[in-house]
């Protein structure tokens, strides 16, 4: 298996958002603007890479039955570290993402990759898988954020393109669901994949 393929798989073939449909809560909840979506994606990537590395290196000594609780503790620790670092050095991002930062713990992508990939593969492969999946997630969130920001407030990465308010529904919940649905359809058309 090529190392590069591990990364590209996470972005296209197993894209966590468009193909696996995992981690929907932050996907919908934080993508009111492109920059927020990207911030959330990178935060999740940080946790994903580190937890994949640690879990793949300790998987052998963890008894099978306490596997899940051990993974959860490891993931939760990284999330807390992230929380503290953001609070200290990027307080404005910490505030925008709010509740969704601690909720990375229960993001099915992180635990899912630990269970499905990291505990069976080498540290190096797991790290690459973390990077790939994380990037796939970040790209999906950034694109969704762009679309919602453009339609909802008429701007692009905070840069105002159209005067006025735009279609407010796209900033709010209904627009999030509908924008994601159409992006998913476009993704399927482009990659020629079926659900």
């Amino acid at each position: 298996m090529g190392k590069l393929k591990l990364i590209s798989d996470g972005i296209i073939k197993n894209n966590p958002t468009f193909v696996l449909v995992l981690g929907m809560c932050p996907t919908l909840g934080t993508t009111t603007s492109a920059i927020n979506g990207m911030g959330m994606g990178l935060a999740t990537t940080f946790v994903l890479i580190l937890s994949n590395i640690v879990i793949s290196s300790v998987a052998k000594i963890i008894p099978d039955k306490v596997r899940i609780p051990s993974y959860i503790v490891i993931i939760a620790s990284f999330v807390t570290i992230l929380q503290l670092l953001l609070q200290a050095y990027l307080p404005s991002l910490y505030e925008t993402l709010g509740l969704f930062i601690p909720l990375i713990v229960v993001n099915c992508i992180v635990l899912g990759r630990a269970e499905a990939f990291a505990n069976k593969h080498s540290v190096c492969d797991s790290a690459l898988d973390g990077i790939g999946t994380g990037l796939g997630f970040t790209i999906a969130l950034t694109v969704l954020g762009c679309v919602r920001e453009l339609l909802g407030s008429g701007s692009f990465f905070g840069l105002k393109l159209i005067e006025g308010d735009g279609m407010l529904a796209f900033i709010l919940a209904p627009g999030a669901f509908i924008a994601l649905a159409y992006l998913m359809v476009i993704f399927r058309k482009v990659t020629g994949k079926k659900a």
Partner: peptide, 22 residues
């Protein structure tokens, strides 16, 4: 429509439901 089958149509439904709840 075929490409909408499964999750996409469910998401659109959820969007309309959310619109109603608004």
């Amino acid at each position: 429509p075929k490409v909408f089958k499964g999750v996409p149509i469910a998401l659109i439904t959820a969007g309309i439901l959310a619109l109603a709840f608004m």
